[in-house]
Design a binder for these strands. Structure first.
Lengths: 207, 207
DNA sequence: CGATGAACTTACCAGTCAGTAAATTACCCT
DNA sequence: AGGGTAATTTACTGACTGGTAAGTTCATCG
């Protein structure tokens, strides 16, 4: 009676494997086109399947999105957390360590970043709230990293802190987008490029 | 016979004035929600009018968008051009002058920025091409501004230059988005905040 | 073989949106 | 008054999309 992988009457592919396929395709599609522009039919077509199957497996379009969001959010959050943690002497400065961690976490599925940072999520929806939750968690980590920086420059304006957090988030997003447009670049190459760009930025206003 | 402002048989409002109203409402709506999420009916409703009038006056949805894009693109391009030009001694460094010019040009209609930087334009469409044209024109100005900076740090990698251009464009977009979420901030206050944030960024990696 | 049940599809409904055709309103001029 | 015309609306079509109901295929097991 121990027929747990019973597989009685199976046409096509086992459900678990198909679900993985769908999640991978949906993550890429949601990330590339955004939630609103992504249709269930195109996601289904990418996997060689029809729309009703997606609804049977995942429920609504928003449920499918949530199924993509959770693993991506967890992966990125964990990556940033560990990157912020190991700061032994001789390591690159924190921002560069975080970027390197993001590039490593996103390698092989770079569009996943925009599943978290999708501006076309229905406002007020569960999906929007959950995505915002992940973004805020990552932001808070960044905020602890910049708090001392703010004090060192004498600024204690909370709006400055908020804008800085926002700018950092936007910079990461921009760099990932550039990376997506240059598929041949390795995470390591990206990290090096970011270091050089930071150096250039520091050279502004030499007077 | 010189009855140029003839206004024979006019119900409601003269066409030119209505068109200005529609363009203002559409610019805000396109900028805020993006092209795809904006519907002709909601734009019409904002002006207290119905959808067919918009089609009669402007043609298709894309034509209406182009009608919004052109003045905004011209205004921003001109603002950046003049900001890059007047570099007398004692003035703030170029990036800050450009930002200040952008904030001034966008004051009163901040969402207009995202008419140029709308990611939801139908790929390959006339609208997408024209928007890209304006973006590229602005980018090229920024590129001439950063060319010497790149050489001064010894980097002659063209990919570095491209990534820097891209990062700068993204940073501007991010700052405008933050500004939109803080409506009480004046352009001057924003410029000052950006200067402080730049100073903070320069303080990274003091080792 | 023949039944079972998971994998999957065809055919459909309901809602939304861009776009159009045909009227209708209301101001102006004679 | 009443004809002309710009401004505007009502009523509609067609395409597309999220979602559902009911059926069909087919490997396995008895």
């Amino acid at each position: 009676m121990t027929m747990l992988p019973t597989r009685a009457g199976t046409k096509g592919m086992p459900r678990a494997e198909r679900e993985r396929q769908v999640l991978a395709a949906a993550t890429e599609e949601f990330g590339r086109r955004g939630y609103e522009a992504t249709t269930m039919a195109t996601v289904a077509a990418r996997v060689g399947v029809t729309k009703p199957l997606l609804h049977q497996y995942f429920g609504s379009k928003q449920d499918l999105f949530l199924g993509c969001l959770e693993p991506v959010g967890d992966r990125l959050l964990k990556a940033v957390r560990t990157a912020m943690a190991d700061h032994d002497n001789g390591a690159p400065p924190t921002p560069l360590r975080v970027l390197r961690a993001l590039f490593d976490a996103l390698d092989g599925q770079r569009e996943a970043w925009f599943v978290l940072y999708d501006p076309s999520l229905p406002p007020g929806s569960e999906a929007a709230h959950r995505a915002a939750h992940y973004r805020d968690a990552i932001d808070e980590l960044a905020a602890t990293g910049t708090a001392d920086l703010l004090h060192s420059t004498g600024s204690d304006d909370p709006l400055d802190a908020d804008a800085l957090k926002y700018a950092w988030r936007g910079l990461c997003t921009t760099l990932v987008r550039w990376w997506i447009e240059h598929p041949d670049q390795t995470p390591e190459a990206m990290a090096g490029r970011c270091a050089r760009i930071f150096a250039i930025a520091r050279a502004v206003d030499p007077g």
